[in-house]
Write a protein that binds this DNA or RNA. Structure first.
Lengths: 339, 339
DNA sequence: CTGAAAGCGCTTACAG
DNA sequence: CTGAAAGCGCTTACAG
């Protein structure tokens, strides 16, 4: 029977020391490996740790070391598949480093972010990843002032403190639209964005506009709609653009959900996709490959973004003190049926 | 300029006490409200807390109180939309109670679960929710022996220690299949399950079998396939059943992903759904309403399950000592186009 | 209504 | 190679 697991009261470091016939100092050093211990002593201690099922108390350790071994991740919407993948990537790396991860939701707009950040800094996170745009300078300073390491997702290094991880959004959209123009011959290409002014809508729009410019085209008059990053937004945007005087032959959407909404409208109006109307998404969430026709889209490497962000944080916590870094991840065009 | 936020070194309770001209005892009591403090003193202390931006150190507090104010949630797959909703529900309640939530992934089979559980108990979670079937008695005992409160999801109260939250799975499937038989007149109804022996496949199968029994029907020979809870599993299962000597006129699937895979096969074979073949899912994940035809399915109240589990845990941590409880949540039939 | 002091369980200078 | 002891920042009996 393993005491401390089945017995009353937890096993403490003094119990291990007594069992091994050494001081707590030595037990601590065997566990941390921060100072040489003779092989014989080490073996006795390790044996005692195992027999007693000793696990150091994280609060006691944290109080002494001023570290919680915990990471915070803040995203606008936990249930969004993109953020879920992101979180999975963070967890994957954090877990191997014996860190725990706390994922919190904070709405894209409004006062939610500082409140959530304060909660996280109050709990002394060792590192915080802000996985959303729209974090102001004051929000970011809240994090760094707390002593937590900071990684921002999506924005640019110049926008504030901490390291940055982002995908090449503009380039991704440019490649997609270039494909539409060059490979598929579409000419009158509309754009449906999310909420106006909310990233990554702007960057994706820019890629779209660049690709048109590169092809000697301009953004068609009246064929840009800003709605919301949802299926409903896609329906509203598609309906509006298809009712324009010169309706588009292709609809480039700022994300997959919007594209799925656009698909609804096309189906409802009996428009063949991609024969009569091409529709493209962005992100490549699971649903993109489930709808009919399957979406042509751009893979946004959510999991890899999460992994990179967590690695950056772990590096910093292990003492890496170099200048701020920016990691830009490649996108990938995913050609399916809708364009 | 708020010291402790922008200054070097954090504000400690002694700093607040000095600023307010009282003892740390009094500051502590003002914050916790655990003993009466005169209005004037309280005001001075609260003012000092605000001015200095004081936030108690969680490690110090935890060391003293033996609580981490943290909840753990273990699920088989973080990226599964059902689990994501579940986690969102847990977080929602935990957050209002000032608890942080750590979501961990542990594979459905294999030695992953005890390892993850050990990690969580090592970190002294105040409560743990096991959101997956297949947790053995030893796993559960690991949790309770650590002192953490336990809530199990999905299984029955009799299966082990802790409180239980579950949805009425069998009843949900029974209602769905009853609908198929009575309202829609299907007679030769096949079943595609997940991995054999992995819940909630068994409970759902039982509901299917019960509904057939109630209608004087039996489970049709050769029309049951156990594959996996994935789109791929659905494809394999549907292909097999449709090649049977007496192919089914309806395919009841153990979850939505399986149903989406079955839909793939129907489309590929040119089978009209639901005219020639009905297909149903279970869970009502977002994608269920995105595919064509939209899935008829059963809503599995993931978020509410999460909320209930978290509430149970918070109650217990506030001292609730009654006997173990089991909360059973209602399902809801969602009629769409596929059946 | 308020305070002095013990003690939670670790890690880490300091000393030998 | 090893140990005695200070101290991390709180909460809570204990005392008045």
């Amino acid at each position: 029977m393993v005491r401390g697991v089945y017995g009353e009261g937890r096993v403490k470091i003094v119990d291990v020391a007594a069992a091994a016939g050494v001081s707590v100092t030595t037990v601590s050093h065997v566990i941390s490996g921060r100072r040489p211990v003779s092989a014989a002593t080490r073996a006795r201690v390790e044996d005692a740790v195992r027999r007693l099922g000793y696990q150091a108390d994280p609060s006691a350790r944290g109080l002494r070391t001023q570290r919680t071994h915990t990471l915070g991740l803040v995203v606008p919407d936990i249930t969004n598949p993109f953020n879920t993948e992101l979180a999975a990537g963070v967890q994957e790396i954090a877990f191997t480093g014996e860190y725990l991860t706390v994922v919190c939701e904070a709405p894209m707009q409004g006062p939610g972010l500082p409140a959530v950040l304060r909660r996280l800094t109050a709990r002394r996170m060792d590192g915080i990843i802000i996985g959303r745009y729209g974090a102001g300078r004051a929000d970011l300073d809240l994090v760094t002032a707390s002593g937590a390491r900071l990684v921002r997702l999506g924005s640019r290094l110049a926008d504030g403190p901490g390291d940055v991880v982002r995908a090449a959004e503009t380039e991704g959209m440019r490649d997609l639209v270039r494909h539409l123009v060059r490979e598929r011959g579409y000419r009158n290409i509309g754009f449906i964005g999310g909420e106006q002014g909310v990233e990554p809508g702007g960057e994706r729009f820019e890629g779209y506009a660049q690709a048109l410019g590169d092809a000697g085209l301009t953004v068609p008059e009246g064929l840009v709609a800003w709605t919301g990053f949802t299926r409903e937004g896609g329906r509203a945007g598609a309906a509006r653009l298809l009712d324009a005087p010169h309706p588009p032959d292709a609809l480039v959407c700022a994300n997959d959900l919007i594209a799925i909404g656009a698909l609804d409208v096309a189906r409802q109006r009996g428009l063949d996709v991609p024969g009569r109307l091409a529709i493209t998404g962005y992100d490549d969430i699971d649903a993109a490959a489930m709808v009919t026709p399957a979406l042509t889209t751009v893979l946004n490497p959510a999991r890899e973004i999460g992994r990179s962000a967590a690695r950056l944080l772990l590096d910093r916590m292990e003492g890496e003190t170099g200048p701020a870094r920016e990691i830009v991840l490649a996108h990938r065009l995913v050609r399916r049926e809708s364009a």
